[in-house]
Amino acid sequence: MTNSRFTALLLAALLCFAGRALAHAHLTDSLPADKATVAAAPAEIDLHFSEELNIKFSGAKITGPGKASVKTGDPVLVDEGKTLKVPLSERLGPGAYSVDWHVLSTDGHKSNGNYSFVVKP
């Protein structure tokens, strides 16, 4: 096989795999932000993604100090279906919080991840 043919096949394979990797919804922004320390407790968690989401299969679990689960309301989509808003049913007290999210993009790809933030005393 010639070098140019091998290079062309390699490039085609890389583009194919890169396209698949880009097809998943990636978290692009959050409020509160990852590793942020906030003075006031948020009333909701906002998660912005790179793609439109399917609300039926998307959500987040928030865990607080002592690994206690935080009660949330029903999540909603805004921003053309790319932002998942998760209302908090209770006021967050001071401490460290973890957000574990899972989403399904409208093209059928699942993604998940987590991040943390701190509410000041």
Rank of each mutant, 00 (worst) to 15 (best):
V38K: 00
V70S: 09
S58Y: 01
D29A: 15
A60W: 00
S69Y: 11
A68Q: 15
I45C: 04
R91F: 07
N54D: 13
H102S: 15
A39D: 06
K82I: 04
D79V: 02
A41E: 06
R91I: 15
E80I: 07
V99K: 07
G66P: 07
S30Q: 03
K35Y: 12
K82L: 01
F49Y: 10
T72K: 05
A36E: 11
A60C: 09
S98C: 13
S30R: 03
G81P: 09
F57N: 15
D34F: 07
V78I: 12
V99N: 07
T106C: 03
L92M: 06
G81S: 10
L88E: 05
P87S: 08
E51K: 05
T106W: 09
T28P: 02
T28F: 06
S50L: 04
L47A: 04
A40D: 11
L88I: 09
S50H: 02
F57Y: 14
I62Y: 05
T106M: 04
S105A: 14
E90M: 09
D34V: 10
S89P: 12
D46Q: 13
L84M: 04
W101Y: 15
L53D: 01
H102K: 14
K85I: 10
E90A: 13
P75L: 03
R91L: 14
D46H: 13
T28K: 10
G59H: 05
G93L: 10
P32D: 05
A60S: 08
S89K: 14
V86L: 04
K56I: 10
D100E: 14
K61E: 10
T63Y: 01
S58D: 09
T83I: 04
I62G: 02
L88K: 09
K71W: 03
K61R: 15
L47V: 02
K85A: 07
K35W: 06
P75I: 10
H102G: 12
H109M: 15
L27Y: 10
D74K: 14
T72N: 08
G73F: 11
I55M: 08
D107M: 12
E52R: 08
P94N: 15
V99C: 01
D46M: 12
L47R: 01
L27T: 10
D29Q: 12
I55D: 06
G66Q: 04
G108L: 04
T63E: 11
I45L: 00
S89E: 05
V103T: 14
V86C: 04
